[in-house]
Nucleic acid binder design. Structure first.
Lengths: 336, 336
DNA sequence: GTCATACCCGTAAGCGCTTACCGTGCACGT
DNA sequence: ACGTGCACGGTAAGCGCTTACGGGTATGAC
């Protein structure tokens, strides 16, 4: 591999000049700079990231911690983060803190804390107190997206208000018997999100003087098939709700499919509303409370990059991302 | 940040001993080793990846190049890769070589070639000759998943045979008027995959003496909504096929939805078969040619890790991943 | 008692960069 | 003629590790 020495030798300058020339720093004449660039190109020289990082203390790398990569929210957030990073010439290190509890500690130590990143952005994760402390003691800019973590800046929608608005939409349409498909997600994920959404559901129901029936509080494990199963079960019993609020669009789609399974019309017999505005939502005509994880991810990355840029003092405040109602064809007034 | 010196001082040994002790190398007595470990823990010491990499030449990082992160195939492959990497204590650097053509060159130079990875695994990407050359001249183990690239080892299903088998399934059921939903994917993706699948479709049709009608060769851009649209259009014309082969499950689901849009029954009026065995396939009762990108990713990672381990001489051969038919409820004999 | 043999562990030379600091040479003002 | 300042670019000291090598001490064989 050709190193900076080779370039310096070939260009007849010192390695310091090569370094300056190639990175666009001042104190290099145009003539020298272009000569160095030419030589570097010819030799196919590319600076070693590790060496630069060691010498400068900046790795130009952002760590992104995700609980998985196979859910819509994370994908979108990842794409958003990536968009900002490439704009700033940063690279992305992906840490998949998957379910297995045992690995987690190892990954934490071996990878995340190994100073290979300048900043860290975590998606929808829950941290143990010890993990939180380690993260903070790392001392580099950190932000959390999708589920608040005490002591760390946060970007995300107002989960409770969003679920409340979803429920309110159904109530406004005239529904009085409304079920909720919530449910915990996998281990290690941020539990507050489903909890807050359920609280929002309760808020709206209670504010409207409607009963929250325990047998209509389902758990759909945040994905289509389980949701479809539990909703099917519920629809089989004597008394049925006229509408369903689901904590996510995937679960809402599961509910729609369950309605079809049971021979019910959507929205005629059953209205369904979700949260997310998932890729598939439009195809299913799903009414939903839209959020934009791409934008949330991009914003998170931008904030961290700003911190690293050091232009402005790091903002210490969390930001609440917007969510808004999109009415499609899965909700309508109930038929009495 | 505490460095190896701090630990050495605190433990009363040299930094060399700290290094050896912490990495489990021989030539350290048990007593010393455990003392060093204790001290390191107390100080919260974690070795700097950059420095280790620089000194040892191994970064313990694998680069993964993807065209996007928001498609099922890539997600699954990523998860598979991640599984193997964490087993080997490797980290993952994710390079999202998204659409924009301009960025690509930059990303290539700035990131991929910057020696921050020990090996590289690329998903479904097409490379320009110059890119290929640069990759190879990097000299580290490389493998491609999902679409063959000349001169680089490859893991993937036999695209042509798989599409042929899908088509054959319909033919065996008695279908004679069969449409194909294929279509290019985004820029920069490997074009051979859709092409080979279409060729497989043709193979089967011709072998059975069936006509391939140009107006029944659709392009669904590898996703649900576009596929739904073009299939809807086709179903509106006077003469309809009795069955559809789609190049992916997402497009197949689009076709199913289009059938419903047009008031047709699946599989009564229209049989649909896909390729992938996507997460949603089961929910839609979709018959499909299943492949396992998780396993393909895992295998790719394993091969590279083996190469790096240097135990066995690097295998130079590509491997053909299996695919197999899963019959569900979206295919049946045609009603004449 | 001597010498070879292990077994530990320290010494020091890098790995390939960045950057503070200093030394030129030249243009300019006086 | 001189000093002054500026624009360039070289020198060298790290950054925090890994690892070849060598030296010291205890152990065993003879």
């Amino acid at each position: 591999m050709t190193s900076i020495d080779d370039v310096a030798r070939a260009a007849g300058v010192s390695i310091a000049t090569v370094s300056r020339a190639l990175r666009g720093l001042p104190n290099v004449s145009d003539a020298t700079r272009s000569r160095v660039k030419t030589v570097a190109d010819e030799l196919g020289y590319v600076a070693s990231a590790g060496a630069s990082g060691l010498a400068s203390g900046r790795t130009l790398t952002m760590g992104v911690v995700v609980p998985s990569v196979s859910r819509w929210f994370y994908q979108m957030a990842l794409e958003g983060i990536d968009e900002e990073l490439r704009r700033a010439n940063y690279d992305m290190m992906l840490f998949n803190l998957a379910a297995r509890k045992g690995d987690r500690e190892r990954v934490f130590h071996r990878s995340i804390l190994r100073k290979r990143t300048d900043a860290l952005i975590a998606l929808c994760l829950e941290f143990t107190p010890s993990e939180r402390e380690q993260l903070l003691s790392l001392g580099h800019p950190t932000i959390v997206i999708g589920g608040p973590v005490k002591g760390i800046r946060h970007i995300g929608i107002d989960e409770r208000a969003t679920a409340r608005a979803a429920t309110q939409h159904l109530i406004t349409l005239g529904h009085r018997r409304i079920a909720h498909v919530g449910g915990d997600d996998d281990e290690g994920l941020n539990r507050r999100v489903p909890l807050d959404r359920r609280r929002g559901f309760r808020d709206a129901m209670e504010a409207a003087g409607l009963a929250v029936r325990p047998e209509w509080l389902l758990s759909g494990r945040f994905s289509l098939a389980p949701s479809r199963a539990v909703v099917n079960e519920m629809l089989a019993s004597a008394e049925r709700p006229t509408a369903i609020v689901a904590n996510s669009d995937e679960m809402a789609i599961g509910a729609i499919m369950a309605a079809h399974d049971s021979g019910l019309q959507v929205p005629g017999d059953l209205s369904v509303i979700g949260i997310d505005n998932h890729d598939l939502a439009e195809s299913f005509g799903l009414t939903t409370m839209a959020q934009d994880p791409f934008e949330q991810g991009a914003l998170g990355a931008r904030i961290l990059l700003d911190d690293l840029g050091g232009i402005v003092p790091p903002r210490r405040t969390s930001v609440t991302a917007p969510s808004h109602l999109i009415v499609r064809t899965s909700t309508a007034p109930p038929i009495h």
